[in-house]
C-alpha cells in the first residue's frame, strides 16, 4: 500500500489501519524520496498504540497471591480437605518453583539458540565449541588439531612454485604435502604493486590452485582482494602465530592466510583435511 504525496493523518484515517499496514506505509521504494511528514504521522500513531499497550494497569502480585490462596482454601474446604491445607499449600509452592525453574530454563535455551544462529555470522561455531567442551579433553583449534606426520615426499610436488616464490621472498608459504599427484604449471605475473605467482595442479579428475601474492608493502595486503565463500562457518587454524582461514565456496574449499607482506590462497577440489595437512606442511622443517 503506497500513498503518493502527503496527506494528513485524518485524511488517511491512519487510526483505522492496523499496525502492520502502518509499517508498510513507512516503506519507501528505492529511488523515491521519502515522504517525511507521512512517516512522522504514521510513527505518531504507532507510538501512541505502543504507549497504550505499555500503560496497562500493573498487577499487584501480593494481592493476587493472597486472593489465589483464599480461593484455594475455599475450594479445599468445600472438598472437606481443610485438614490437609498445609500439605497442599506446600505442594502449590513447589509447583510454582518448578514453573519458575522451567521458565528460566526455557529463557536460557532461547538465548542459546539465538546466539548459535547469529554468532555464525561472525564466523563463530558455538556447537563446535560445545563439542570441544564435551570432549574428553579441551583444546583450542591450533597446531594440535593438525596432522603431525612429517612424511616429507622425496620429490617436491611444488618444485616450480617454490623456485618462483624463492625469487620474491624467504618466508615459508609453500606447502610440502600434496593431496594427490598432479601436473604442475606455474605462471608469474608482475603487477604494479606486487608479484602474483599462480600454481595450477591438475590430475585426471581433480584440480586445485595455489596463489602466492608478494606485495611491495604489508599495508597493501587484503585491501582490494575478495574471497568468495558460502554462509558456512570459517574454520581458523593458528600455526606459527599466523591465522589460516579455511572456508567453503559451495563444493570447493579454500584456505587463505598472509605472512607479513605475502598473501596465500589454496583452493580447488580439496577437503578441509587436505587443506589442513597442506598448511601444516608449510611449516615443516
Amino acid at each position: 500500500m503506497r500513498v503518493n504525496g502527503h496527506k494528513h493523518n485524518s485524511d488517511l484515517m491512519l487510526d483505522r489501519l492496523s499496525t502492520q499496514e502502518l509499517e508498510r506505509l513507512l516503506y519507501t521504494p528505492e529511488g523515491e524520496e521519502p515522504d517525511t511528514e507521512l512517516i512522522s504521522d504514521v510513527l505518531e500513531v504507532i507510538m501512541a498504540r505502543e504507549a497504550e499497550e505499555t500503560d496497562a494497569p500493573a498487577v499487584d502480585v501480593d494481592a493476587a497471591w493472597e486472593d489465589f490462596k483464599e480461593r484455594c482454601m475455599e475450594q479445599d474446604e468445600a472438598c472437606a480437605l481443610a485438614d490437609e491445607e498445609p500439605q497442599n499449600k506446600k505442594l502449590k509452592t513447589g509447583n510454582h518453583s518448578v514453573l519458575v525453574l522451567l521458565r528460566r530454563f526455557a529463557a536460557a535455551v532461547a538465548v542459546l539458540i539465538l546466539m548459535c544462529g547469529t554468532a555464525s555470522a561472525f564466523g563463530l561455531d558455538i556447537f563446535h565449541w560445545l563439542a570441544s567442551w564435551t570432549a574428553e579433553t579441551f583444546r583450542f583449534s591450533g597446531l594440535d588439531d593438525l596432522p603431525i606426520s612429517q612424511d616429507i615426499p622425496e620429490e617436491d610436488p611444488y618444485q616450480d612454485l617454490r623456485a618462483a616464490v624463492a625469487e620474491e621472498t624467504d618466508l615459508p608459504v609453500v606447502p610440502t604435502r600434496a593431496p594427490f599427484e598432479a601436473a604442475e604449471e606455474v605462471t608469474v605475473t608482475q603487477r604494479l604493486d606486487s608479484v602474483f605467482i599462480h600454481g595450477e595442479y591438475k590430475s585426471e579428475d581433480k584440480e586445485y590452485t595455489i596463489s602466492v601474492i608478494v606485495y611491495d608493502s604489508i599495508d597493501l595486503i587484503g585491501t582490494d582482494s575478495i574471497f568468495l565463500k558460502d554462509d558456512s562457518i570459517i574454520d581458523r587454524h593458528e600455526i606459527n602465530h599466523i591465522e589460516h582461514y579455511v572456508m567453503k565456496n559451495y563444493d570447493h574449499f579454500s584456505c587463505v592466510w598472509h605472512n607479513e607482506n605475502v598473501q596465500v590462497q589454496i583452493q580447488g577440489s580439496l577437503t578441509p583435511e587436505d587443506l589442513e595437512s597442506m598448511i601444516a606442511s608449510v611449516y615443516w622443517e
Binding site: T209, D224, L228, K229, D230, Y250
Partner: peptide
C-alpha cells in the same frame, strides 16, 4: 551473514 556470496565459478577477485 547476508554479505557472504558463493560462486561455482569464481574464487578470488582483486
Amino acid at each position: 551473514a547476508a554479505e557472504a556470496r558463493a560462486s561455482y565459478y569464481f574464487s578470488r577477485f582483486e
